[in-house]
Design a protein around this nucleic acid. Structure first.
Lengths: 209, 209
DNA sequence: TCCTTTGTGAGAGTAAACTCTCATTACAAT
DNA sequence: ATTGTAATGAGAGTTTACTCTCACAAAGGA
């Protein structure tokens, strides 16, 4: 309750907290790189921190992994740099899909752990913005106002389902597709949906692919 | 190694095993009906069977839930009875999608437990045929040979991603759609994909929806 | 009837996600 | 330098999925 004299100087405790948080995140990223499953205890030990402390900074494993993964992920702008000049939403969505799915593939273990942890706790998910949405929005930016609001929202919902780790795992685990084939298939699906929403059913009005 | 005298008469042990197995499945179905989460121990206790025995009959919770759910599920023919006379794949796929997603919604707790259990063990999934595939195949039966093999396979992959519990949970949990809206959205997505595959980009050739 | 086979139960044990409490340590203001 | 507060560590406890072992009991054949 006592007003601190110098609230913004060092605030050592804040620095300490930041250091701890960063260490935990860094350890998580390191473990995630392997693609193996990641547990909270492993991360804590690797960060030279007790498990209790790890839970003090991140309410659950999914939050930690999500933030660690988000930190590794380029911004939508960076991710779609290759198609930055393109105004073709189909091309942009294809790039976004491939980008996200390749990332998921690399951090497969962590992503699977994240899904497993969140699927049974739908309430805890709402707080976290999925990685996919920023990517989808950015990919669709060129047509954000040329498309009707309803059509745009539907397309975003369509893509939220397809441009996702769940879609990738569905294709690899259930359809038994090889990773590369799964990505290719998802890209085609996303492409089809986007083309259908943008071109409607009038071919020839859009750019040639 | 001794040849049994009467191998096919009563075979009491086989009957006993079947009774136990049936009791476990029945208990699982009963618990699943509530939509709540289901644990192996709960099912075992409810079936008046030890947990060890439950694991003897089903290698893991996911197997048990999957089989219990499959037993509750009507056959693809029954599920698509309403559109049995229709040869329009778009209409049939829409019905299949809505049917599956409504079932998932009812058995939401068990389905989430299933996904959580299988997502981290991709290898154990391959043995189990997903419920969606029979439905998708049946819905696409009318166009199975009019469509090219590659196009058909791609459409099946498209639909495997969309006609799924994962898609429903993605829409409700991440996109924050109400259950009914989520189903409607997924049906539209599946419809779009099917129409796109069947009609190509030449509108007017198919029946009016 | 006896005996072997086998289904079953009970319980311990492991792993991992959490949760909680209590003691300790270290920082930082006074 | 002292002292209070905040960060941390250690560890126990809970839940659930699963595994393993051992002992019991019932079923069926001899």
């Amino acid at each position: 309750m006592t007003a601190p004299t110098t609230p913004s100087t060092t605030t050592g405790r804040a620095n300490q907290k930041l250091r701890t948080r960063t260490a935990i995140l860094a350890a998580a990223v390191e473990l995630m790189r392997t693609g193996q499953d990641v547990s909270m205890l492993e991360v804590a030990k690797s960060a030279l921190v007790s498990e209790a402390t790890a839970y003090r900074y991140f309410p659950d494993l999914a939050s930690l992994l999500q933030e660690a993964m988000a930190g590794q992920m380029p911004t939508p702008q960076e991710a779609l740099a290759a198609v930055a000049d393109s105004h073709d939403p189909v091309e942009r969505v294809a790039a976004a899909t491939e980008h996200l799915l390749r990332l998921v593939l690399v951090y497969q273990g962590a992503t699977r752990a994240m899904i497993a942890a969140t699927i049974t706790r739908p309430d805890t998910v709402a707080a976290r913005p999925g990685l996919r949405f920023g990517l989808i929005d950015h990919a669709l930016a060129p047509v954000a106002d040329t498309l009707g609001a309803a059509a745009l929202q539907q397309l975003k919902n369509d893509l939220a389902v397809v441009v996702s780790a769940e879609a990738l795992f569905c294709l690899t685990d259930l359809c038994a597709l090889a990773p590369e084939d799964a990505i290719a298939s998802a890209v085609r699906t996303a492409t089809t949906l986007t083309r259908s929403a943008v071109h409607g059913h009038t071919p020839g009005s859009g750019p040639l692919i």
